[in-house]
Amino acid sequence: MPVSLTVTDLSLRKGYNLLISKLNVSISSGEAVSLTGENGVGKTTLLRTLAGFQTPESGAICATENDVQIESDIWWSQHVHFLGHHDALSPARTVAQELEFQASYLGGDVTKVAPLKLQTLMDLETRYLSAGQKRRLSCARLLMARRVLWLLDEPMAPLDVAHRELLAGLMQAHLAQGGMIIAAVHDALPFATRGLRLERPAREVAGV
């Protein structure tokens, strides 16, 4: 069923700083957007806002399915995955325990994560994993519980070439199944995306 997300006149602040001013963008089933811009321009803040973790200064975020608006709480809890810089793993859990926890929390299916090739890591506590292994483990949540929108913050950064190709294939499969992706990136993703570059807004002038 066709799903779309529309952002209208969105303005975001971090502290007293206006990061994003009156942003307009939309994305529909099967589309991917590459989010670019200088460090500190607001890419992570935008992703966190779209995930429902932060409140915008102004503007609207509207998700629809078959042209029917989806309630915000339902959208964020049932239709969105956010994968940030921090991998959000418990250091004392083994990989197997972490997968079971995430599956229970998300209502997911652990058997769906096989493409990530984590089998040889199952008995290791997550504190002993490399940065790339932690990222693959974090990506498991994307596969075990289907969500239409993936919000990804530098998803390829800690991965080697082989695992970047693996993740790229999983992202393309998600799009082919009607999913949507918004990914903050420095380097271009290895498949076609629509670009959205964030620029710093003009300095605010008191009284204007």
Rank of each mutant, 00 (worst) to 15 (best):
Q78G: 11
Q78M: 15
H79A: 15
H79Q: 15
H81G: 03
F82R: 06
F82H: 13
F82N: 00
G84K: 05
H85V: 04
H86A: 08
A88V: 13
A88F: 14
L89T: 05
L89S: 06
A92I: 14
A92S: 11
R93Y: 13
R93P: 00
R93S: 08
T94D: 00
V95S: 01
V95C: 04
V95I: 04
V95P: 04
V95H: 00
Q97G: 03
Q97P: 02
E98I: 01
L99Q: 10
E100R: 09
F101S: 06
F101M: 11
Q102R: 10
Q102Y: 03
S104Y: 02
G108W: 01
D109F: 07
D109P: 07
K112L: 15
V113M: 05
V113A: 12
V113L: 05
A114W: 04
P115R: 13
P115S: 06
L116A: 11
K117W: 04
Q119R: 12
Q119E: 15
Q119W: 06
T120D: 13
T120P: 02
L121W: 07
L121C: 03
L121N: 02
M122C: 12
M122P: 06
L124D: 11
E125T: 12
E125Q: 15
T126P: 07
R127Y: 10
L129V: 03
L129I: 12
L129E: 10
S130R: 02
S130C: 08
S130T: 14
A131L: 10
A131K: 07
A131V: 02
A131I: 02
R135C: 01
R135I: 03
R136Y: 01
R136I: 03
R136E: 06
L137A: 11
R141N: 07
R141I: 06
L142W: 05
L142E: 00
L142I: 12
L143M: 14
A145C: 11
A145N: 13
R147N: 04
R147M: 09
R147G: 08
V148C: 13
V148P: 04
L149E: 12
L149N: 08
L149Y: 14
L151P: 05
L152S: 04
D153E: 09
P155D: 08
M156N: 03
A157G: 09
A157Y: 04
A157K: 11
P158G: 12
P158L: 14
V161N: 05
V161E: 15
A162L: 13
A162H: 09
H163A: 00
